[in-house]
């Protein structure tokens, strides 16, 4: 069944086919659960004019913030982007466009995109700038706005373990947006801490079934902590 073997050996293979102007959906929340090596590979490739869909845009010098250094990102679709000075500078210069999207709407846009649902109604954002220009419809007396799904040319995902078939499991809150991102890429690439044999992850504990996954690569992770807070 080698047709199901998704493992690639190099980052060049992992991101092969990424071109200027493409849309990349990235998993992660802040710096937690981000595909560090895949982001670094995009920086190495120098791909430009990217639309990146991710809850945040990393920090200066790490995570998706790396792709700002050479101005590779044309547009970010995110819920919160306040963590890096370079982002702010490029936004104010007009070099970078941002589409602020409520966090739950962003997750649902990815989920819907991966599930073949082109759009959905939600109460979130009705009556706010997010709802401007969007179709409004009432259900049971309450107004909702129509939000469109998102799919990506690529999805880049960080999982804890994957088997060679691409079945994935996430660790703790590093799960976050990764499972939805995984479903929404035309090509979904998963970077993992460990690759195991099929069957080693019990079938009922798999978070992302391998059908969504095209490529798996074993990475090594710095796992930088954004805000370390400890109990006294």
């Amino acid at each position: 069944m080698s047709g199901f073997n998704k493992v690639v050996d190099t980052y060049e293979q992992a991101m092969a086919g990424l071109e200027d102007g493409m849309t990349v959906i990235a998993g992660g929340f802040g710096l937690c659960g981000i595909p560090e090596g895949l982001i670094a590979q995009i920086k190495t490739m120098g791909t430009r004019d990217l639309t990146v869909v991710s809850n945040n845009c990393g920090v200066d010098g790490f995570g998706l913030g790396l792709l700002l250094e050479d101005k590779q990102i044309r547009k970010m679709v995110s819920s919160y982007v306040g963590e890096n000075a370079l982002f702010e500078q490029q936004l104010l210069n007009g070099e970078l466009e941002v589409e602020l999207t409520p966090q739950g709407t962003l997750a649902e846009k990815m989920r819907a995109g991966g599930a073949g649902i082109p759009a959905f109604y939600t109460a979130t954002g009705y009556g706010t700038p997010v709802g401007d220009g969007k179709e409004v419809r009432e259900f049971n007396g309450r107004p909702y706005i129509l939000e469109e799904a998102i799919t990506g040319d690529f999805a880049i995902v960080k999982a804890w373990k994957a088997d060679t078939y691409g079945n994935c499991i996430y660790r703790h809150t590093a799960q976050n947006f990764n499972p939805m991102a995984a479903t929404a890429g035309k090509i979904t690439v998963v970077e993992v801490e460990e690759i195991v044999a099929p069957g080693e992850i019990p079938p009922s504990e798999i978070h992302t079934p391998g059908i969504y996954v095209n490529r798996v690569i074993k990475g090594s992770f710095e796992k930088r902590i954004e805000r370390k807070v400890t109990a006294n």
Binding site: S78, S79, Y80, V81, G82, E88, L91, L92, L100, P102, Q103, G104, T105, T122, A123, T124, G125, Y126, T128, V130
Partner: peptide, 15 residues
């Protein structure tokens, strides 16, 4: 002022 984003606040108040 620079707008950083709404995060989950719009979802929380709607839900």
């Amino acid at each position: 002022k620079l707008v950083k984003g709404m995060g989950g606040a719009m979802d929380l108040v709607a839900g």
